[in-house]
């Protein structure tokens, strides 16, 4: 009886996960071993060609470029959110709640719409350039977008909350008494940070990094809108395979490749002594 009701409670989640997550992924996995015909159709076969194709120099270059953009985005997000989270965690609990809620407010609007908003701010005749020129800070307009900078601004802006939330959760979990204990035992501020605060917040940083790095590889619309189509992320690559080249099997193979890399990163984290519980902890 008890088991039955337990299943009943869980069934919406289970059905959701199976129908909307597991099936599509299995389908993508299945597709990745097929071949496409010239008209975008699928020829059912069993081939590893799509995976071999990923290691073509052209695609490796996209992968590398994309990974370095995602990596730099991740580092910028860490550098912004860490001090911010320490700042928040020192406020009163009520103020903390308000500030964290504010971090999540942007989620209320579709990120594509928000990216269009950035175009208004960043373009040559945009808000930023008008202000800068009106104040005579610079002569000509600065190219904020249609280049790497535009992509970075867009990625950091969109993904920052995903870094702030896990980092905040680990920073706010640090017991003030533990910091006092460190001071009491003779550690100066530098050692308290490097030996006590940083190691205890590492899971949060890693968790945030995963949640920034992986989407950053795939956010094709930011590269399209703010990069002016000059910058190709893996996300653009996948999108193009599905929508432009009509080569679904190859697009599927790249997608599976990304999923495998994500798994490997988590494995690596576990290997280096990370606790899996800390990853789900926010």
């Amino acid at each position: 009886m008890k088991n039955k009701s337990k299943f009943l409670y869980l069934s919406p989640v289970v059905i959701y996960a199976i129908v909307l997550i597991l099936f599509p992924i299995l389908y993508i996995l299945f597709l990745s071993f097929q071949t496409n015909d010239n008209y975008g159709g699928i020829i059912y076969s069993l081939t590893l060609n799509n995976y071999i194709k990923i290691f073509d120099i052209v695609y490796l270059r996209v992968l590398f470029k994309s990974a370095s953009i995602a990596f730099i985005t991740t580092v910028i997000c860490i550098l912004i959110s860490y001090p911010f989270c320490i700042f928040i965690s020192e406020k009163k609990p009520n103020v903390q709640k308000i500030l964290i809620t504010l971090v999540m407010v942007p989620f209320l609007t579709n990120s594509l719409i928000r990216t269009y908003g950035w175009i208004v701010l960043l373009r040559k005749e945009g808000v930023f350039n008008s202000i800068l020129q009106a104040l005579n800070i610079c002569d000509g307009p600065i190219s904020f977008m249609y280049n790497n900078m535009g992509v970075f601004i867009g990625l950091v802006y969109t993904l920052l909350p995903f870094m702030i939330l896990p980092v905040y959760s680990s920073v706010s979990k640090i017991d003030k008494k533990v910091l006092e204990a460190s001071e009491d035992l003779g550690a100066n501020a530098y050692h308290t940070f490097t030996k006590v605060i940083l190691p205890q917040t590492l899971p949060g940083i890693f968790n945030g990094s995963l949640m920034v790095f992986i989407p950053a590889i795939g956010m094709f619309f930011i590269a399209d809108l703010l990069g002016g189509g000059k910058i190709m992320l893996v996300g653009n690559l996948i999108k193009n395979q599905f929508l432009v080249s009509r080569n679904w099997p190859f697009g599927a193979a790249i997608s599976i490749f990304l999923i495998v890399i994500t798994f490997l990163l988590v494995k690596l984290y576990k290997k280096t002594g990370g606790n899996m519980d800390d990853l789900g902890g926010f």
């Binding site: 017991d175 008494k177 533990v178 006092e180 204990a181 009491d184 035992l185 003779g186 006590v196 205890q200």
Partner: peptide
Amino acid sequence: PRKREVNTIFQNFALFSH
């Protein structure tokens, strides 16, 4: 505190969990 030759045992132990 760190220059005083005293040590404290805290109520909730305050051990370094890592």
